[in-house]
């Protein structure tokens, strides 16, 4: 029973990471109908920024915030400089552009920070841990919940959040009422970058930091986004926690660790085949 609880809870902790990545993906998908394959690499790069600052003696939480600011600015810059050039390009061309960015960021990180696997510090005191969860896992759940709450509050209660939602939902009408849709998109990219950075910084002490650390996590993020419904950000967050628990339990009791990634594949296919809109998504009806 104890092992089961342990697996369940640490699944929730991992789920928080998938939830954040899923949320970042859904935010960009809602606004642009593109899937950002470079999301994981952007997050990884920001985690390296945090690590470099910490190693230079900057206090953990200051480094954390600077890395988030960096991720935000980088996200905005990517949208402004690269992505918007491809507004009218075919879908496949955009996919290739995202893959190109994935290669670029990954290679730059390997060059600047080496491909060596490095340890990443955890800010949470060991005393916080319990029988079922390590201190870092508890802290990770806390940070994820705070992030989700902040993002929710931002979109729900601030005029800027409202403008961003409007721009994503109906760009033409938003433009007519004076919202600068282009900038709202860029802000959305920045925000998604920052949320991804939180996920990577929280994941790094567990999976260790290296340029390819996010490949698996990104896949679970996709699974989370699809499970929750790709047009529902909060669904993606819930989906993340479900995927985390499912992955951990399946890894412990069903397929063993060596096939863990295949669990994501199975989740994605089962969800898409049985309930394509996801658990909380709305079904898109196309008019003929």
């Amino acid at each position: 029973m104890d092992t089961f609880l342990h697996q369940l809870l640490s699944g929730l902790a991992n789920g928080g990471i998938y939830a954040s990545i899923g949320l970042a993906l859904v935010m960009i998908f809602q606004a642009t109908h593109h899937i950002n394959f470079a999301q994981g690499e952007q997050a990884m790069f920001s985690a390296y920024i945090a690590l470099t600052l910490i190693q230079a003696g900057v206090p953990y939480w200051a480094a954390f915030l600077i890395a988030l600011a960096f991720a935000f600015i980088a996200g905005v810059a990517i949208e402004r400089v690269v992505v918007r050039q491809f507004d009218n390009a075919p879908v496949l061309a955009v996919v290739v552009v995202f893959l190109g960015m994935l290669f670029i960021i990954n290679s730059l990180a390997g060059w600047l920070f080496t491909y060596n696997v490095q340890a990443f510090p955890s800010p949470f005191p060991v005393g916080l841990g319990s029988k079922f969860l390590s201190a870092h896992e508890i802290g990770m759940i806390g940070v994820t919940l705070v992030t989700l709450a902040v993002v929710y509050a931002f979109f729900r209660f601030t005029p800027l959040g409202l403008a961003m939602r409007a721009a994503a939902q109906n760009p033409e009408a938003s433009r007519l009422v004076g919202i600068r849709v282009g900038w709202m998109l860029a802000l959305g990219w920045g925000l998604a970058g920052a949320i991804g950075a939180v996920a990577a910084i929280m994941a790094a002490p567990i999976v260790y930091i290296e340029p390819n650390m996010m490949a698996g996590i990104l896949l679970y993020g996709f699974a989370a986004a699809l499970l929750g419904g790709i047009n529902n950000p909060w669904g993606a967050a819930v989906g993340g926690f479900i995927v985390g628990v499912a992955e951990n339990l399946a890894g412990a009791y069903v397929v063993g660790t060596e096939l863990k990634l295949s669990v994501a594949l199975v989740i994605i296919i089962v969800v898409l085949v049985t309930k394509p809109a996801g658990l909380f998504g709305r079904t898109v009806v196309t008019r003929v």
């Binding site: 998908f29 698996g216 896949l219 863990k260 990634l261 295949s262 594949l265 296919i269 898409l272 085949v273």
Partner: peptide, 26 residues
Amino acid sequence: PALRLEGHYLALSTFALAVATPQLLK
């Protein structure tokens, strides 16, 4: 299963297939 998937959804499921391939081969 791909019959029921379109566009991005198919892209994501095949992406998952590609990521899982080495594990399945091992």
